[in-house]
Amino acid sequence: MRALFVGGVIDNNELDLDGNEPPRHYPPQTGSGQSRYRLHAVGHGNGGIACAVYGAPDMEPGEILRVSDERGYARRFETELQMVD
């Protein structure tokens, strides 16, 4: 699956993630006890999760979804993004 980032120091970057489920936070362990990015939405495809959208901790969830829509993340992966709690 592809991890897509909105906001913060790695804004508009992406990377491949292994596994069947995206981690709730990325990176999963920062050493400081505080994660930098939080999972906000996933897009399903090809029998699993095609993409995961992570947002910087200082951004509102609505803004993260607006930016991901503007960047066409769902369209790129031919999926519909679904919010996670």
Rank of each mutant, 00 (worst) to 15 (best):
A52Q: 04
S35Q: 13
D85G: 12
N13D: 08
A50P: 11
F5A: 02
A56I: 05
H40K: 06
S35C: 07
R76L: 10
G47D: 00
N46R: 14
R66E: 14
S68Y: 02
G72L: 00
L17P: 03
G72V: 03
H40S: 07
L4R: 10
M59A: 09
E78C: 08
N46E: 12
P28Y: 05
D16C: 03
E21W: 11
P22Q: 00
Y73C: 02
Y73V: 15
L15T: 15
V42A: 02
M83V: 13
E80V: 14
G8A: 06
V53Y: 05
N20G: 15
N46F: 06
E60V: 12
N20R: 12
R2G: 09
I49V: 15
N12Y: 05
G45I: 01
C51D: 00
E21M: 12
S35L: 01
S68G: 10
L39P: 04
E70W: 01
G33W: 00
D16T: 11
E63D: 14
I64T: 10
R66S: 13
N12I: 03
L4N: 03
R24E: 12
G7L: 03
S68F: 03
A56N: 10
P27A: 02
Y26C: 00
G72Y: 03
Q34W: 01
G33L: 06
T79M: 03
V67A: 02
P23Q: 09
G48E: 11
H44N: 11
R75N: 01
N12W: 01
Y54E: 01
A50Y: 00
V6M: 09
C51L: 11
Y26P: 02
R24K: 12
I10S: 07
E70M: 12
R76Y: 02
R75E: 11
A74N: 02
A50H: 02
C51R: 01
T30G: 08
F5I: 05
A52C: 14
V9A: 15
F5G: 00
G47T: 08
